[in-house]
Amino acid sequence: MKDRTLGIVTLAAFVAALYFALIYAPTETTMGEVQRIFYFHVPAGITSYVAFLVVGVGSIAFLATRDPKWDRLAYCSAEVGVVFAGANIALGMLWAKPVWGIWWTWDARLTLQLLLALIFVAYLMVGAYISDASRRAPIQAVVGVLGAVNVPINYLAIRIWRTQHPSPVIAGGEGSGLDADMGIALAVAGAAVGLLYVYLLRRRLAVERTRQEVEYLEQVVTAQ
């Protein structure tokens, strides 16, 4: 699928997601309208996890195969993942302020998401600050692996530390559960956000390929 087509499909999915999130889904009884932030907050968070998982897989695949396409995939996904993590945190804060009365608390899930974003910002910084182009890819991949390994350990550490965040409403054990219409709205919004990730990743990869082409042409020009 071409990027333009994918962009139009994503846009259409977002129009549908807005309808389902704002009109179709019933108003939550205790929190009221503000609960509708949930329909984009949760998919943005899950998508950022997926994006960071792609960074880990891409980094390992690059170290194993030395194919530059894995390296590109890893750091482009990291950048898009940081955007989603940032959006997720911002949405969460705008929900927490009216519902909890505070912007931020050092709760397990919040802290984990913050640390994940920090790990992958550091990962992107490493790549940006290595001048030697041939050394950048393997070194950044190593940071990607170390960062990915950190994710489950961070999860455990913070889990033992504290928990205040509402437990997952889906598969969250006894007593949890989402109204069926809310579930549909979440699924539609999730699909839209997922498509957005693929779209943004493809656009970012296209930028990266063009950048590498520019570097190659500059070498050709100076060599002549």
Binding site: L115, L118, I119, A122, M125, V126, Y129, V143, L146, G147, N150, I153, N154, L156, A157, I158, I160, W161
Partner: peptide, 17 residues
């Protein structure tokens, strides 16, 4: 600058524990 940034970010779970 990069060493403290990487070091502090990646040792965070160990420090918490």
């Amino acid at each position: 600058v990069m060493l403290p940034i990487l070091q502090i970010v990646l040792t965070m779970p160990m420090i918490i524990a």
